[in-house]
Amino acid sequence: MQLSREALLQAYRQMKTIRMFEDRLHDEIALGEIAGFTHLYAGQEACAVGVCEHLDAQDFIISTHRGHGHCIAKGCDVVDMMKEIYGSSEGLCKGKSGSMHIADVTRGMLGANGIVGAGAPIAVGAGITAKGTGNVSIAFSGDGACNQGTTFEAMNMAVVLKLPVIFVFENNHYSEHTGESYAVGAESMTVRAAAFGMKAIKANGIDFFSVYEGMREVIDYCKAGNGPASIELDTERFFGHFEGDPQRYRGKGELDRLREERDCLKVFRTKVTEAKLLEGADLDRLDDEVTALIDRAVAESKTATRPTADHVLEDVYISY
């Protein structure tokens, strides 16, 4: 299947936006301007974008603690996201959520989530809503989250109810500091998902095209009314588990090697320019566009309105 020039540019724009958003946050956090725990998504962009480029606002996704990439890929406003992470009352969640709970339900983005494994069951519920509408519900989980009982229950229930739910397992080979080979007892997440009775495939999570093709396959399967499916994406995380993580669990030179050999943005650029689908200059133009967007997001966030004490009791619907 051939993607249009517009579709290719859009995919690159989205991946680059995520990368620059995360790279910039990494720098800003080092300056001490941003509070709380922040888990960066850099390295995994091809996953979020390869999945979400198939979706529209009526499809649902639910994310994880590492949620910025999923939010951007699903169309959340980048400036409002940044303001949220800065804790402004102009933020997407009015400064209540910070990095870990960004949501925009109007865009089908049911939230980043601080509880590992909480997403998959909620995606099943969104799958109940989506059933029969031609839309799908996507649960993003990591290689760590795949070990939660909640994830198992959700997979089984989605099969039993024949729901259009897709379990996307982003295998970045670590849950916090623990290697995937230690914590995942099965041979793979795919083998495990298949054992629940769903279609389960793998794709290359550093190659946008591989993710995109794989997703096409499982989405078609779900939309045909066959029930849920799963896709396991082999990918990499470029920063620590959270910002401030000394990453002593990494191998020597591991990060340099990953950034050199397994960078999904480099892979994309090489593929599209070698196949003459896009020019390097097209991509450079997008780089400039995205740089300007992120600069604006940060600048606006730094001067955005701060919340005040009376906001604490807003939106609890019953106050005392």
Binding site: E176, H177, T178, G179, S181, P246, R248, Y249, R250, G251
Partner: peptide, 17 residues
Amino acid sequence: GEDIVGGMGSPGGPEAI
């Protein structure tokens, strides 16, 4: 507990953290 050894199954090895 989770990650109480820290680094199990990782290149850095057990007790990396």
